[in-house]
Simulated scan of single mutants.
Amino acid sequence: MPNFKVKKIKDLILPFKKDEVELEWMAENNNVILIYTKVNEESFFLQVKKEKDSSFVIKGDKHTKPSKIAYLQKSLQIFRDYFCNHEDIINEAFAFKHNALIEKTSLIAYDFDQLLSKIKGKIYIEIGFGSGRHLLYQAKNNPDTLIIGVEIYNPAITQVAKLAKSQNLSNIMLIQSDARLLLSVLESNSVEKIFLHFPVPWDKKPHRRVIAKNFCQECARVLGKNGRFELRTDSYEYFDFTLKQFLHFSTPKFSLRKNEDLEISSKYEDRWKRQNKDIFDLWVWNLDSAYDELNLDDFDFSDMTFNANDLILLEKNFKNLTLKGDDYFLHFENLYQAKEGLIFKIAFGAFNKPEHSYIYVGEKIEFLFKKPFRIKENLKAMEKLKKVLKFHFDTALFS
């Protein structure tokens, strides 16, 4: 992350604008100053953190960083040049080039908003694509289909993106995420195929398997009328476990196969075949979705009002607090004082892939930057947030 360290900073008189960089307002606590920054169409926080030696580190806030690193670099340059003296600079780790503002095309999505903006027409999803052989094969043979690859290991994402570019394939989009959260943000009946090839079987820790009741329900929701889930595995236990999970649906249809050769083979499959291991295929379709569409209110806080005394109580009673439900959590991380209200930094939602947001609480309550994704875990967390704010952190009510 680009940053620099300085012995002291000048008085922060905001708003301040230079070129395309706007430093609009700030919020602070004992250790950190957050500066609301805009560059062209994007907004984010610059963070000024006071160190133990009374120096300051200036960097971008990691949970609000802009999509273009050059926006952050330019903002740091402006802050350095106009709010610091050159002789006070201790060190810096950023360099700005004007041509870096030019947006570069990529096959990698860095967040769900970017991914969802690319979705048009037919979709295939491959979970845990590894070396990418099967994913690239599907992209080559289905040029009118967007192949979404989800993987938790970033090196695999970078390598497969390079391979796709070398093969002139543009109909793929790769993202680093938990597959369960990816499915939860997709529209219902929007996917034609979901591939899960050679997942880690987790025989001794089955709770870590991606296959579970909620995952199967999400598959049923996002798959279209004739959509299909395809498992390929060398583990009979995993094959049997998956079959049993989908048998909970009322009228599922299956295709079961053993040791069938495909036109494309992964490096793991090659290894298992050399060891004379059996390979199992399970195709599942005709899944009735008992999953009700969430009727969310867009995280509306319009029914809540706060006066000056309420804000005093909120600040006085603030706690670094984590609240947990059966399938969600809410963590209050930090509180910052702004000119006319308070800023809360919170983490919340699904345990396997939490979201982080800043919420402004003043005469009104609103999310800074962007609203959370409209999934049930986030909705439950926001309902809990409303209760905590309403009762000013009287957490005895929620124990």
Results as ranks from 00 to 15, higher is better:
residue 328 Y to P: 06
residue 359 I to N: 02
residue 393 F to N: 05
residue 304 M to Y: 13
residue 202 W to Q: 11
residue 289 S to F: 03
residue 266 S to C: 11
residue 311 L to E: 03
residue 352 N to D: 14
residue 18 K to C: 06
residue 344 F to P: 03
residue 141 N to H: 15
residue 35 I to W: 02
residue 354 P to V: 04
residue 269 E to M: 05
residue 272 W to S: 10
residue 161 A to G: 05
residue 368 L to I: 02
residue 310 D to M: 02
residue 64 T to A: 03
residue 352 N to A: 14
residue 297 D to M: 04
residue 204 K to S: 12
residue 64 T to P: 00
residue 356 H to S: 12
residue 305 T to Y: 14
residue 225 K to R: 11
residue 264 I to M: 11
residue 145 T to Q: 08
residue 248 H to C: 11
residue 360 Y to V: 01
residue 384 K to L: 15
residue 175 I to E: 02
residue 227 G to K: 00
residue 127 I to V: 13
residue 215 F to A: 02
residue 233 T to P: 00
residue 109 A to G: 01
residue 74 K to T: 01
residue 159 Q to A: 15
residue 169 L to P: 09
residue 337 Q to K: 09
residue 344 F to W: 08
residue 336 Y to D: 02
residue 166 S to K: 13
residue 104 K to R: 10
residue 201 P to K: 00
residue 234 D to G: 14
residue 191 V to M: 03
residue 73 Q to F: 10
residue 357 S to Q: 09
residue 374 R to A: 15
residue 261 D to P: 04
residue 215 F to N: 01
residue 118 K to I: 05
residue 16 F to E: 01
residue 173 M to I: 13
residue 54 S to C: 07
residue 15 P to F: 10
residue 29 N to S: 08
residue 37 T to N: 01
residue 277 K to V: 09
residue 66 P to T: 00
residue 220 A to G: 14
residue 70 A to E: 07
residue 155 P to A: 12
residue 352 N to H: 13
residue 112 F to M: 08
residue 315 E to Y: 01
residue 307 N to R: 00
residue 80 R to K: 15
residue 22 E to F: 12
residue 283 W to N: 11
residue 214 N to R: 13
residue 232 R to C: 09
residue 31 N to E: 15
residue 2 P to D: 07
residue 16 F to M: 04
residue 312 I to Y: 00
